[in-house]
Write a protein that binds this DNA or RNA. Structure first.
Lengths: 238, 238
DNA sequence: TAGTGGTCTAGACCACACT
DNA sequence: GTGTGGTCTAGACCACTAA
């Protein structure tokens, strides 16, 4: 937490989560906060603008910053989060079963992606269970030119942890699409569905800090277990 | 467009969309931009940070700001956008059929919302078609204490246009959940589905600038026509 | 009128990438 | 070393809210 504004953001977020600043109350004004934290007003404003985009507060001109009642939305299901992280922060009783690790080319047509040459990747297929019920079937294609090798133990634990903390990769952004499709026989079997039921498919492409494409993922969700929660701010279209 | 940084943001976004700054190239540096636009560097940085969060560029420390290849993600399906706006910006051949306008209480249990007293609302049910195929069934509950009356003509045109441009309401943010459910007979009939097929339900609560809750919406999507596109930046969980 | 957030400035120092 | 983006500052003026 080297940045001032980041430290202030987390301090304020904590205080909101623990109701030191209760829902519906106003935070101290920006000038008061800048005195409190011994920093300039612009730095305070950066921290507040983080709180704003993450749905902690609403700023009202001429009045102040109100604490919102949206704590439940603050875990970033709409962001990029690994299963292990989610699991940890939600205290779920979950497990991961590695079904397959092998070298494959990325099935580009699935991802609506153009490439002159085939993309070599490590294919990892994993089944995620919560309380012993299958919830998600994850299919990851991790590009070989970035990560040459992936071991069984890493796949069973957490790919993101390995990439970020062992390899020092900085994951930056992703594009996602969510659609509803018919399952294949295999998918239905693994997720314990009958073949009439649809599946929810979340496909994403993940990029590193330097804009290198790095991973393709296909997450197949049981429809009855799927829930996507989002917080959005209005933005006019021009 | 009174704000400098907003004007600069739109100018740069336009130039990216029209490939004046091609995909993969670098924008001029921040100091160059501040000379170009005759403004301070911090103002430029605000504009760039908008471009960043909307997926237009990626900033790389020590190098510059790279133009990303994500134009298709820039219409905010993940934001708050009205059907009419989307329609206009996507040039679709669409129509809206108003099925019902009447006074109702908000069915709070559907939205997992607590309230001591029932919430009086105008209920508007509309069926959205594209190329004469039913796509979405929208059910809006607009709270009476904010908007007392809604006419048939307004519902047939655009609620958001009415709220923002006629009534001067400022819509600020919303919470959304996406789930997959079984249709009722009526829903299946309206969307021309067989009752085996699932539906995608997007439920949202929309708030005004002053944090007043203002609208509940239930959007029922045909599963085969549903697609949700998102751009997300990585944020660590603490 | 006093206090609030919204915008903008001109400067400073730092960490990082490239050559 | 030079140029880049990342952070931070101290001050200014504005528009809005409330008493």
């Amino acid at each position: 937490m080297q940045n001032k504004f980041n430290a202030i953001y987390h301090d304020l977020a904590d205080k909101i989560i623990h109701h030191i600043y209760p829902v519906g109350s106003y935070l101290p004004s920006e000038t008061q906060l800048s005195e409190l934290y011994g920093t300039s007003r612009e730095t305070i404003r950066k921290a507040l603008s983080e709180l704003l985009t993450n749905g902690f507060i609403q700023k009202i001109r001429g009045k102040g910053s109100v604490v919102l009642n949206l704590q439940r939305f603050n875990f970033p299901v709409s962001g990029i989060t690994s299963f292990k992280e989610l699991n940890k922060s939600q205290h779920m009783n979950s497990s991961t079963e590695v079904l397959c690790i092998e070298d494959q080319h990325v099935p580009l047509e699935n991802f609506d992606y153009q490439s002159a040459t085939p993309l070599k990747a490590t294919y990892v297929e994993r089944l995620r269970k919560i309380d012993n019920e299958p919830i998600v079937l994850d299919r990851d294609y991790i590009l070989k030119n970035i990560v040459p090798e992936i071991s069984q133990t890493v796949a069973a634990d957490s790919l993101y942890d390995y990439f970020e903390n062992q390899l020092g990769l900085v994951i930056s952004y992703a594009t996602k699409t969510i659609t509803v499709e018919h399952p294949t026989k295999e998918e239905a079997k693994l997720l314990e569905l009958n073949e009439q039921q649809d599946i929810v498919v979340v496909r994403s492409q993940t990029y590193l800090e330097d804009t290198t494409l790095f991973q393709f993922t296909e997450s197949i969700h049981r429809p009855d277990k799927f829930s996507f929660v989002d917080f959005a701010r209005r933005q006019k279209i021009n």
